[in-house]
Design a protein around this nucleic acid. Structure first.
Length: 479
RNA sequence: GGCGCUAUCGUCUAACGGUUAGGACGGAGCCCUCUCAAGGCUCAAAUACGGGUUCGAUUCCCGUUAGCGCUACCA
């Protein structure tokens, strides 16, 4: 049984790089009939926060890609301690009584002393046991087998064959002096215990993998298959971080900005991966079907955002593409919360009628607020009266058009086609261009020049509202 | 500093020894058109640098440079 796992640590909100890792895991599992394990890596007591945990579930929930099993490392501590003890008993690990490094001064990188402390590594078992029994704090370190083994290797599904000299690997910590496991220990112990067959994660773990391979072997387990993903980076080349880049890297920012969850998923997939054909807009089944490690790129991908615009233009475009492909009912349902949040009273029938008029004019669901506001407002927001004046015309012409429009609209069937016929005929009768006829009416009725096609708009708005707004515009032009 | 990974238009990417180096986003222009969009067409835009190997390198090898990652009792 194929099993993948996604292991976020609740030390910040779910950022888009983590989300992409989750998506790739999910896709790979679904593609190959496997299970998705969500594991919360909460072994760092000082940095874990509840908000962060909420943010992870929030973000993951929004993506709409469900996991099959859920674990928390904080509930599995005995497992890690047992493994550390077993390694200690076997001599594959040892106690190090050196106090924790406090970061006060530069580490002496030039020497090879960073690999291990020979005194601690060479402590006799009796001496080690005695000091431990005396209550002296210690950390348990893995004893990298530099004497018996030249190198560690594994094959990565993305980066190919990897090898590292044991002489370049330090004796890393397994269990902290407070009894909590380190990431390397907890992660590997869980990957064994939870029977992960594939470890798909960020490339920042590529060099850690050598340590993990050693741990799998020490635990007598076959290492899983590894696939490391290129990192997502900011336009300045730095890796995405909350501290430096703020909420632009949070998944919930996209949700709140009016992205369709699937469009966001689609966008993330295209960062560091591509299908063999050139497809870009893809449905979930299409993505699942097409996903494979072969399509994964090796170099980091930039997510474009600026101070003014948090969203990558390509993500916005892709979102618009998905929006346009939605059925009216679905699009209406997705827009509704954004309109409601903006304070508009949204009646379902009206919204459904408005939907086809805005669909090609919005790139995010939130855009609907600015594009469709006049459909839901009783009183139009104040606008510049000069907008009423058409091209190559003056206020007098605008006034004339609007004054003719009133009786015309009062006496015409309020359907798109009859409205168009009536207004076009009137323009011809007045001897003016259609644009000169339509613009004053459009502005009077919508409060702006840029709006959906006029006749459909009039129809949806209804005779009463249209006449009211046109009369108000006439008042303005007269005063 | 050590170790590792990476390097094609501004960005995301295709080309897995032979192409006028392709596509997409974004940009510019034109068309369509009642405005705004959407759509169609066109244009500008890249193989980091230097050596090899080869009849032939974006592609293989070496070096340089640059970027990134790891080098914590963070994950």
């Amino acid at each position: 049984m194929l099993r993948v796992r996604f292991a976020p640590s609740p030390t910040g909100y779910l950022h888009i790089g983590s989300a992409r890792t989750y998506i790739f895991n999910w896709l790979y599992a679904r593609r190959n009939g496997g299970a998705v394990v969500l594991r919360i890596d909460d072994t760092d007591l000082e940095r874990n926060t509840q908000e962060s945990l909420d943010s992870i579930f929030d973000g993951l929930g929004w993506l709409g890609l469900p996991w099959d099993e859920l674990y928390r490392q904080s509930e599995r501590l005995p497992l890690y301690r047992e493994m550390a003890e077993a390694l200690l008993a076997k001599g594959a690990a040892y106690r190090d009584f050196t106090p924790a490094y406090d970061g006060a001064e530069e580490r002496p990188y030039s020497e090879s002393a960073w690999l291990f402390d020979p005194v601690m590594r060479g402590l006799s078992r009796q001496e080690s046991d005695r000091r431990a029994a005396a209550g002296e704090p210690f950390v348990i370190r893995f004893r990298v087998p530099r004497e018996t083994r030249r190198s560690v290797e594994f094959r990565d599904a993305v980066f190919g064959d990897q090898s590292k000299a044991t002489a370049d690997m330090e004796d890393f910590a397994l269990l902290r002096s407070n009894g909590m496991p380190t990431y390397h220990l907890a992660s590997s112990a869980d990957d064994v215990d939870l029977r992960a067959t594939h470890v798909i994660r960020g490339q920042d773990h590529l060099t850690n993998t050598f340590k993990h391979v050693l741990l799998f072997e020490a635990a007598g387990a076959e290492p899983p298959q590894f696939a490391h993903l290129p990192l997502l980076i900011a336009p300045d080349g730095a890796k995405l971080s909350k501290r430096k880049h703020g909420p632009v890297v949070s998944v919930t920012t996209y949700r709140d900005g009016g992205f369709l969850a699937h469009a966001f998923v689609n966008f993330l997939c295209l960062l560091g991966w591509s299908p063999k054909d050139g497809r870009e807009r893809m449905s979930r089944p299409e993505l699942t079907e097409a996903f494979s490690f072969e399509g994964i790129n090796k170099s980091n991908a930039v997510v474009n955002f600026t101070e003014d615009d948090p969203f990558d233009p390509k993500a916005v475009w892709l979102n618009a593409e998905h929006l346009r492909a939605l059925a009216d009912q679905d699009l209406a349902r997705h827009m509704e919360p954004f309109l409601t949040a903006a304070g508009y009273k949204v009646e379902p029938e009206r919204l459904l009628a408005v939907t086809p008029l805005v669909r090609e004019r919005i790139r995010t669901l939130k855009d609907a607020v600015a594009v469709a506001d006049f459909f839901f407002l009783n009183e139009l927001a104040p606008y510049d009266g000069a907008e009423l004046v058409p091209q190559k015309g003056d206020a007098k012409l605008a006034l004339a058009v609007l004054e003719r429009a009133v009786p015309l609209l009062a006496g015409t069937g309020f359907r798109r086609d009859s409205l168009e016929a009536a207004l076009r005929a009137e323009a011809a009768a007045m001897g003016i261009k259609t644009g000169q006829m339509f613009q004053p009416i459009r502005v009077a009725v919508c409060g702006r020049k840029a709006a959906p096609p006029l006749f459909e708009t009039l129809e949806v708005l209804g005779r009463e509202t249209c006449l009211k707004r046109i009369r108000q515009a006439i008042q303005r032009l007269r005063s």
